[in-house]
Amino acid sequence: MSDIDCDGLRLSRETEAILLDFLAEKEINEKQEKEYPQNFNFAENWQLSQFWYSDETIKHISALIGKAARKKDNVALLSCPSLYISCKAVHHNTIIFEFDDRFKIWEKDFVKYDFNNAYDENYLDEFRHNFDIVIADPPFLSKECFEKFAFITKKIVKPNGKILFCSGEVVEEYVAKFLDLKKCSYKPKHTRNLGNDFTTYSNFNSDQFFE
């Protein structure tokens, strides 16, 4: 007879096995839900120049990750937290670099960073040449911001790694100068209408993955 007793009624071994499997699966699902929440419910912080992508753009960029990343590749998201959940769903080795401490809820997948510290000695050296794909969305459309983002990106990406920047068309000269990225056809959209026209820049044929 089984040792599991429910209000005085003993379960058969077969029923006990089914129940134990159910409880084990439930525990795993609850753990995954805690680690990788399925809903992105964070409000934009305009002081940090945060603007979330539209559902369509999130779908397209996460699809790019799913197609372009090999199983063992490491993917870094720089200052684009609205991509994290969908990208994580299609590629397990995805982490987010963010200044906003709210995203500490993603625990081991969260890296606190400040692009203003880019030139500090040994800054982010633990991630040197660690990522096969880097997706970045610099928060400010300034030369200083892009120069520091470029420095960090070149530090953490592998020598032959893929880079995709999502930003305003007005910064094309900075992107070309500091990272030698080419303007692409795909144009990301946001949940809000922003004053600048946005596009993508990459060092690979990223447009083929958006088709």
Rank of each mutant, 00 (worst) to 15 (best):
P139I: 00
E98R: 04
L141W: 02
F149E: 08
L181N: 03
E14Y: 01
F103E: 05
D5N: 06
F198P: 13
L181M: 02
S185F: 01
F165A: 05
A17R: 15
F40D: 14
F51A: 12
D5Q: 03
S167T: 06
K59V: 03
F198S: 13
Q32V: 05
A118M: 02
F210A: 10
I163R: 04
E35W: 01
D137C: 00
N130F: 07
I152V: 09
S2G: 07
T153Y: 00
S167D: 08
N160A: 11
F151Y: 15
E173Q: 13
E35Y: 02
N39D: 10
I135N: 03
G161H: 00
H190T: 14
F151E: 13
I85H: 12
I28F: 10
E30R: 04
K155L: 08
I85W: 08
F115L: 01
E98D: 12
A176S: 06
H91W: 04
F131P: 06
F127Y: 14
F151K: 14
K189A: 04
H60Q: 09
L19P: 07
K71D: 07
S86K: 14
K104C: 05
N116P: 05
K26R: 14
F209Q: 12
I18W: 00
F198M: 13
S142Y: 03
F209N: 10
R128L: 12
F115C: 03
A43E: 15
K104S: 04
L181K: 01
Y123Q: 05
I135M: 03
A24N: 05
F146H: 14
A68M: 07
V90D: 12
K154S: 03
F198T: 15
D21H: 08
F97H: 10
E16I: 01
T199Y: 00
A89Q: 04
P188R: 04
F178E: 06
C145D: 05
V134C: 06
I152S: 08
L11A: 03
H190E: 13
V171T: 13
S79Q: 10
A150H: 03
S185K: 15
A150I: 13
H190G: 02
I156P: 14
L78Y: 04
G66A: 04
H129M: 14
P159V: 04
C87L: 13
I4H: 00
N130R: 14
E27S: 08
I58D: 13
K187C: 10
F140D: 09
F40Q: 12
K67N: 12
P159M: 07
Y113I: 01
N196E: 15
L181E: 06
D101G: 11
E172P: 06
F40Y: 14
E25Q: 13
D137N: 06
T15I: 05
F140L: 00
L20P: 13
P37E: 08
F131C: 02
F42H: 14
F209D: 05
R13S: 06
R70I: 06
N196K: 11
K72I: 00
R192F: 10
N41Q: 07
W52I: 04
